[in-house]
Write a protein that binds this DNA or RNA. Structure first.
Length: 441
DNA sequence: TCTGGGGTCCTAGGACCC
DNA sequence: TCTGGGGTCCTAGGACCC
């Protein structure tokens, strides 16, 4: 029996959110495009033209708005309904190329591949060709540009993806003739798992490059850094430490939160936002077949708020549940406890949210012997979910969330005050009948 | 004079990712 | 006026118990 060399391919969508926006607006393909975070806070995606103009990643929109206007940059609020749908289409294409596709994030996936190490030259040529073929297939099927890189470990594939950027968008890094030279010149902060803090320390340790990190002593890494960075170093040497996830890991917590359009002080308005987040979280639990037993509500004035106040309060339910009424009631009951300031002054809250934990598969929720179980409404919940799938999430809501009109306004980034700012929202072209693109001939 | 040792659980905070 | 949201993992330190 032949020992196969296991390899991993990374498929990375280029400027994914911008590519999604340009898909339905072909006239944008040659123009600079940026996509903003929720609440139109800062830049989270830039296409090549916008990068060439020097628009920085993470730049606060209010600071660069005038410059973007002057440069003719097309600006979009983020539209996750659209991005998630297009991401799923890309994944379906990738499934043609490997039985194991690990969807790492909305715009990246790892594929399990293998090679016959007895014929490295032949195999390298085959994999180089395969990388290009994957790239072209995704483009043909979805019109989303991707980069494809193949290596022995995820960390090496991530590094290779940077290289592919300048080499036609596809590369087989396994056995690549320039590999050592590339790693010796790659700054360590470009390596997956090395942020700016560790990069700074590593530079003092004479390990300012990928090759330098790989060469550090194991016990030194363990003692002066941590096991996570040790794993990264091993991966750079070709030792796989981050296995391919064939199933997404079980969710341990679920957070829903948003900044408000404007700072709030009224607990009643904050409770509306908390109610909406709890209801949405309950819906997500049901979608994934999960239930939660710990509900936490939190509010914050943000880093720049005065007086600063971060309030949180949590409640443990007698049994895990995914019932909207039960979770909304529990979350709203915590609002007063978390908005009450400890010191003087009236905090102006900028953000509120709900965090669920104690997550277990629904139906296997176990309570204590003498606890009164949470009152649930499974048939009603199922009906609510069905209506939401068919007519949209705003069609039917729990009163505590606000009215359907109010929620539609929240989606569109208009009033009420506790909603989001989304002034540059594109239509949900692919998931809503009423927002389909119209072709005029 | 002088204050154990080991275990668990929880929380906060740090570091990173997209 | 104005700086996102949603995650994971690891570690240190405190509380508590025997």
């Amino acid at each position: 029996m032949t020992e196969r060399r296991r390899l991993v391919a990374l498929v990375d969508c280029e400027a994914f959110y911008c590519s999604c926006e340009a898909l339905f607006r072909p006239e944008l393909r040659e123009r600079p495009v940026v996509v903003l975070s929720n609440n139109d806070g800062c830049v989270i995606s830039r296409n090549g033209e916008a990068k060439a103009l020097g628009v920085p990643m993470g730049a606060p929109y209010f600071k660069i708005r005038d410059q973007l206007d002057a440069d003719g940059v097309a600006v979009f609020s983020s539209n996750y309904a659209l991005y998630h749908d297009l991401s799923a289409r890309v994944l379906r294409v990738l499934e043609r190329f490997s039985p194991h596709v690990d969807a790492y994030s909305i715009d990246e996936a790892f594929l399990d591949l293998d090679a016959d190490p007895r014929h490295p030259e032949v195999e390298r040529a085959r994999l180089d060709h395969l990388a290009h073929e994957i790239r072209q297939s995704v483009w043909a099927a979805t019109r989303i540009p991707v980069r494809v890189s193949i290596a022995e470990t995820k960390t090496l594939a991530k590094a290779a993806s940077e290289v592919a950027r300048h080499r036609g968008g596809a590369i087989c890094f396994w056995g690549h003739p320039e590999r050592d030279a590339i790693l010796a010149s790659m700054p360590v902060e470009r390596i997956w798992g090395v942020g700016h803090r560790w990069a700074k320390r590593l530079t003092f340790d004479d390990a300012a490059t990928a090759a330098g990190l790989a060469a550090l002593d194991d016990s030194h890494l363990r003692r002066h850094y941590n096991v996570v960075l040790l794993r990264t170093a091993l991966e750079l040497r070709g030792v796989s430490c981050v296995p391919l996830d064939q199933a997404p890991p079980a969710r341990r917590s679920l957070v829903r939160s948003r900044m408000f359009r404007e700072p709030l002080t009224d607990p009643a308005l904050i409770a509306r936002a908390i109610g909406m987040h709890a209801a949405r979280a309950a819906e997500m639990l049901r979608h994934d077949g999960l239930a939660a037993s710990v509900v936490e509500a939190f509010v914050t004035t943000g880093r720049h708020g005065t007086p600063a106040h971060h309030g949180r309060a949590l409640a443990e339910l007698p049994t895990a549940t995914n019932d909207t009424f039960a979770l909304v009631r529990a979350a709203r009951s915590l609002v007063d406890a978390c908005v009450t300031p400890r010191g003087g002054g009236q905090p102006r809250f900028k953000k509120a949210g709900v965090m669920l934990s104690g997550i277990v598969p629904a139906g296997r929720a176990q309570g204590h012997l003498f606890d009164v179980p949470v009152r649930e409404h499974p048939a009603l919940m199922e009906a609510v979910d069905r209506i939401a799938r068919r007519f949209g999430r705003e069609a039917v809501v729990v009163a505590a969330q606000g009215s359907p009109d109010e929620l539609r306004a929240v989606h569109a980034g208009q009033s009420p005050a506790w909603g989001m700012k989304r002034e540059h929202l594109s239509p949900r072209y692919t998931t809503r009948w009423d927002e389909l693109p119209v072709v005029r001939v």
